[in-house]
Design a protein around this nucleic acid. Structure first.
Lengths: 201, 201
DNA sequence: GTCTATACAAAGATAGAC
DNA sequence: GTCTATCTTTGTATAGAC
């Protein structure tokens, strides 16, 4: 017999699953409690309130995303492939964990016009991780200021993939489109910056 | 004294403004009523329920976006510029109407895991308008199957811009990044043509 | 640490008068 | 068509026992 996880763990699992599937605000506390088979008092004893629980669940999920992504970066050899690994990681992330409707972090952000400090920090961490790691990988690939530009643009494309999934696109197709687009951006910024100058209005 | 708009109009205005600023689910009916200075019974007499009101407000906003975008397409001359006009339109749209946190349609979608039929249709209309118009403009620019691919990729980039705004990016910067990225995608799929070769057979 | 039972607040919707 | 007043449901959180 597998020993039953603690009430705390069950609550985190349930909160993560339901936030991923339905969104955090859309999920009532009762549903989390029912799924975790835990009583209300236990939740509030451990996490203070609903947002406290969600924040902990999001932090845990971000850590898992972080390590999945890092694995994919490590598996890649060429610098360009290391940059594109974020798309491989997204596909792997989506199949290894509870499937999310699009992105738990963007979803929580969209649902919460006025997040508390802890929640806001956690949501910002997701964006910061994206931009910072992409910038570090870019810097290894091309020198100077363009690294930040490249990181921002890949983040934009990556975010577009997530948004397309929210729009109802097939996830695999959206990821492939994003990857192809990002590859274009990488080559354009690495091969010379003439390609973007004509695009300004 | 400007004649006061009807209660129905005031309700639509209030619902649109608040959905744009805070999101639809996050905004209680009472707040809409307060802003519109209308009583509850009037709302339900006109729209049946909250979702009915929101759907009408979204339809009206979609029609305005549609015409703003079409104007920008018409103002552009070269086919590539017509494709990129969606970014010009986004900037114009955002300054001409009540500023929205990111995108009213994606926001409503993110907030509503199980939308009613009318709402789902309205939200899908937004995506359909994007993909269809971009595909039509693409077809005028390059022949054959790639038109659908190009439309999908520009939609992805455009959606990425909206997501970056949700992430907290400066809107102007995100739009410029998206436009540059889209220009890259267009040229790559057009077969390496430059902007000057606008007159193709 | 965890449970049962319950309090308290917010939100959506309706009744009936004018 | 619009208002005032109210009802119902749902959701968050707490009290007190084990």
């Amino acid at each position: 017999m597998t020993p039953q996880p603690s009430a705390r763990e069950r609550l985190l699992d349930a909160a993560e699953d339901l936030a991923a599937l339905q969104g955090m605000t859309s999920t009532p506390v009762d549903e989390i409690l029912g799924r975790a088979r835990v009583s209300p008092a236990t939740l509030y004893a451990h996490f203070g309130n609903k947002e406290g629980l969600v924040v902990e669940a999001l932090k845990r999920r971000l850590a898992r995303w972080d390590s999945t992504w890092q694995e994919c970066v490590d598996e890649a050899v060429a610098p360009e492939e290391k940059l594109l690994a974020v798309f491989t990681a997204l596909a792997r992330h989506r199949t290894s964990l509870t499937p999310s409707r699009w992105c738990v972090f963007l979803g929580a952000s969209a649902e919460t016009p006025a997040p508390g400090n802890d929640l806001a920090d956690t949501l910002a961490s997701d964006t910061r991780l994206l931009v910072d790691r992409l910038e570090a990988l870019s810097a290894a690939y091309l020198q100077g200021a363009p690294a930040k530009v490249l990181a921002d643009r890949i983040t934009l494309v990556y975010t577009g993939v997530l948004g397309m999934i929210l729009r109802g696109s097939d996830a695999e197709a959206a990821i492939a489109d994003g990857r192809a687009t990002a590859a274009l951006v990488i080559r354009a910024l690495a091969g010379g910056d003439h390609a973007e100058s004509a695009s300004r209005p």
